[in-house]
């Protein structure tokens, strides 16, 4: 595994910095998921959440267990799964659009008790 990135002062970038980025992305995703009414935007928010998790995997692996690759593979794996999930979700969204004329989540309230 290569060298750690260094900042302007020449010291390695602290792990906390990466986590801060990940945190921001994650909560941006959460926020988007809760506030957006458009299904496509909700899907993008979900992708943000997943990406935040991927960053965490990679960073923790690099900083805490530099001799191993498990976290990296997990991140790759998640990307593949996310791609599949996106394909399915888009298929669903297209069908919702065809049925209702738009892709608003408020349309999907039939499944209630």
């Amino acid at each position: 595994m290569g060298e750690l990135l260094i900042d302007n002062a020449g010291a390695p970038v602290p792990i906390l910095a990466y986590q801060l980025v990940s945190l921001i992305i994650f909560f941006a995703g959460i926020y988007g998921f809760f506030t957006r009414r458009n299904l496509m935007m909700m899907l993008i928010s979900v992708e943000l959440i997943l990406n935040a998790a991927d960053i965490n995997f990679a960073v923790f692996n690099r900083y805490l267990y530099p001799g191993e690759m498990d976290g990296m593979f997990f991140a790759l794996f998640t990307i593949a799964i996310a791609a599949c999930e996106t394909a399915v979700a888009i298929a669903i969204i297209i069908n919702v659009y065809r049925n209702f004329g738009n892709a608003e989540v408020d349309n999907l309230k039939n499944m209630k008790g």
Binding site: I30, F33, F34, V105, D106, N110, K112, G113
Partner: peptide
Amino acid sequence: RIRGFQSGEIQWYAWVFL
């Protein structure tokens, strides 16, 4: 008594989950 929880609003579910 508990059927009201299943409102059909996905984002409400997500809130509860979170």
